[in-house]
Design a binder for these strands. Sequence first.
DNA 1: TATGAATGAGGATTCATTCAT
DNA 2: AATGAATGAATCCTCATTCAT
Lengths: 204, 204, 204, 204
Amino acid sequence: MPKLGMEPIRRRQLIDATISSIGRYGYSETTVHRISQAAGVSSGIIHHYFGGKGELLEASMRALLAELRREVVGRLARATTPRDRLQAIVDGNFAPSQFAPPVVAAWLVFWSQARHEPRLARLQRINHRRLHSNLHHAFAQALPPAAAIRAAKGLAAMIDGLWLNAALSGARDVEVARAIAQRFLDLELNGQGAAIPPAMNDRR
Amino acid sequence: MPKLGMEPIRRRQLIDATISSIGRYGYSETTVHRISQAAGVSSGIIHHYFGGKGELLEASMRALLAELRREVVGRLARATTPRDRLQAIVDGNFAPSQFAPPVVAAWLVFWSQARHEPRLARLQRINHRRLHSNLHHAFAQALPPAAAIRAAKGLAAMIDGLWLNAALSGARDVEVARAIAQRFLDLELNGQGAAIPPAMNDRR
Amino acid sequence: MPKLGMEPIRRRQLIDATISSIGRYGYSETTVHRISQAAGVSSGIIHHYFGGKGELLEASMRALLAELRREVVGRLARATTPRDRLQAIVDGNFAPSQFAPPVVAAWLVFWSQARHEPRLARLQRINHRRLHSNLHHAFAQALPPAAAIRAAKGLAAMIDGLWLNAALSGARDVEVARAIAQRFLDLELNGQGAAIPPAMNDRR
Amino acid sequence: MPKLGMEPIRRRQLIDATISSIGRYGYSETTVHRISQAAGVSSGIIHHYFGGKGELLEASMRALLAELRREVVGRLARATTPRDRLQAIVDGNFAPSQFAPPVVAAWLVFWSQARHEPRLARLQRINHRRLHSNLHHAFAQALPPAAAIRAAKGLAAMIDGLWLNAALSGARDVEVARAIAQRFLDLELNGQGAAIPPAMNDRR
DNA sequence: TATGAATGAGGATTCATTCAT
DNA sequence: AATGAATGAATCCTCATTCAT
């Protein structure tokens, strides 16, 4: 009998090595050889477990999404009010795990490559929809429909934009970023915002 | 007899072909051969005019930045009040030219590659600082120092996040995105926001 | 506790899977992995029973030769006159088992590879000599020496050529091919050709 | 301006190197690297001129067919009677060029691989039909329809079978083989065999 | 006996770059 | 100024083989 139960261990090793290699060398310099070296295994093993480089990249992106989801879902489970839920989503997206340099690099690569690789595009769409749906669902319990949509879009953009800026500037100021998102959330929930002119809403 | 004055024409041709190729095939599939084909010239010419692929990519990113700058600066020139200036910056960033699919793809690539290519990173830093400095300068004329910083960071994130979301969803809803940014701007300028706790500001 | 008596079963399984894989995928696409999959066993087993791929291929060719030999020898056993013997050889070479598509493909491969693999070349030489010796021996009982040699060479070529043509055209017209060989045999033995029965001509 | 007119030269070089490599190493051991080495060029050039290994192999087979055709067509042009034409076909197929060892090996490979590569299969079909159509056309001028068909099939098989046997036994006895084909031709045309000249028999 | 995990050499192919013309 | 022929290193991938279990 061969070694049993290696599959999940090797898959995890290789996924981690992939994310780390993307972080260190970038997407176009991430080769099968580098990944397998980082994982301390031979290069053939990648095809044994994943079938090819493309599938490994896809699995890596999937692992990244799963980790983000874990951060958000764990916090959502402890939330009761809509505000708590929104806070949980913001906090999950600004969790330390999301700012580890290799993770940041891999996310950027994900966004950039998704345009040209259908499988990555699909994962990205799912992720984006989940974020938006979570936000909208929570806002809808506290705001009128049009405002809930607008707030969800705004907060989603805020999260991505702040994350992006924090990521580009080397993951410093994460807490400031989170505070700004927090403030935007408060503004929307407290109704202090001026309404978008009706004509603008109609154009959607 | 050598043709005179070909240099600027060829350079522009090649830069356009590069952006278009990134848009069509993605970064890692953008080859010297594809670029030269798209430009209708031979592959050797790229090295003649740019020295190498890297330099051409850099020049292309520079061209992208210049175009964005043009959109913003043109609008800024016609602005008088701080609010006008902020509006000009928002509008410049949401100008149609910034949502052409190849441009969007190229921007994403730029952000993603900048991490691993110092020359691109430098351009990106310059761009980011310019945006932030423009925003901060305008806000500083209307808000107290701490609020101006916060507002500048928030609006910068808002612009990037909305742009990113619009870009990822195929450049639909650009106007809605702009309206959301507009509203954020109004909120910050009208002083309806609750202050971020001082301790948080100090941590920066 | 080891299973006893598995060896001949496994060897036969693997040989059959090899011939079938050559038939389906061709020689250069016949891999150890494909063979073991077709046989429903693991890939390591091939080395356990045969020592390597080369030996398995050789054993497969040997099995093919044995099968042809069986077809011929069985018929020869029931033959009494030289003419019967020649007929038995012709019929054995045109037996249905020799036109099963995987068998045809494997024979072609055999002929083509034998040039570069000494072990296959040896098997092929033995086979060729056996055919020629059988034919010559029978002809020698009915014809003068020079004519017997010529007839043996001619009939051997006829058999191979007709087999090849039938094989290349998808094993249709096997009966016509056999009839043509039959007629050649008759011509050589009688000094003139007996007409092919009209019904046979009509079937074309 | 680059070197002009290299294309036909390089293509011919590479095709010759391919046939020679098949002859020396066999099909499955014929690598791009070996071919390019035999041609004295770099390996990249194959893709420059042929697009890939498959196309080069196809072009090589095509060159082989063209050479055979040249041998036959040249002789056919000097033939007037049906018998002359049939003789021309036989002689063309037994021309020395068709027994050069690399050519023989390549033909065998061609036959064996054609089963699994549609493009080779197509070439083979064309070749087979041409031979058969040439033979049948000539026989039809001298024999009744049913006999013409039978004779054409028989001679085609004879040619292939003799060629195959000669090829497998190292291209010795080519003249004997041709004499046997000749005799078969005579038998079919005359309804009886002309004796092979004794001198010919003695040469064995 | 049998498995399938693991290796790493070798395959075709791609590509930026160089350079003779 | 411009070409595209030519290179060869690097890429992904395949595969026969080995071996611990």
